[in-house]
Simulated assay, not measured.
Amino acid sequence: MLAALDDLTRDGQPISVSAVARLAGVHRSLIARHGDLHAAVAAKAAQPPNNINGPQVSRNSLLSDLANLTERNTRLAGHVARLDNACPKPLATTPGAPLASALHRHPPAEDRPP
């Protein structure tokens, strides 16, 4: 399994328990059960790749970006919910009803502006 880990590192492939297990021909749980093997995979995965020609991004940087974008998505979802609550009811209340027919209806006389 350590040879598989070295092969992945040499080839510049992503390092993960699944990738090492796949290349070594064993089940992922074998690596998870052996703390020393799991620690070796985690340590290699945390290191930046050696042979990448383009910009390098660390796993921690990607996880930080993911956390920030998840938080932004949560804030935007809350904003959309607040806007939905602030807006009046939609004109076409029947799903699939054409919006044009709802736009041509006239409000009741008591709701019309003078």
Rank of each mutant, 00 (worst) to 15 (best):
G35S: 13
L83S: 12
P98T: 06
A40R: 09
P88W: 07
T94Y: 06
S61H: 12
D84T: 13
P113I: 09
R72C: 05
E110V: 05
R82E: 15
A100R: 05
V17M: 06
P49G: 03
A3W: 01
T94N: 08
C87N: 08
R75S: 10
R28N: 14
A39C: 01
N50G: 07
I15C: 04
N51K: 11
I52K: 07
A45Y: 08
L91I: 11
Q47S: 11
D7H: 01
M1C: 03
V17Y: 02
E71F: 01
D65S: 00
D36S: 07
L30S: 09
A92C: 05
G35D: 12
L103A: 10
V41Q: 12
H27Q: 11
A86E: 07
D111V: 02
A32W: 01
N50K: 06
L99H: 10
N53F: 09
R28Q: 12
G54Y: 01
P88Q: 10
T9N: 01
N68W: 07
I31Y: 00
V17G: 02
N51T: 10
G25R: 06
A42D: 08
A21Q: 03
S16K: 08
A77H: 11
L91S: 07
A40K: 09
K89A: 15
P88L: 10
C87H: 04
R33N: 15
V80A: 15
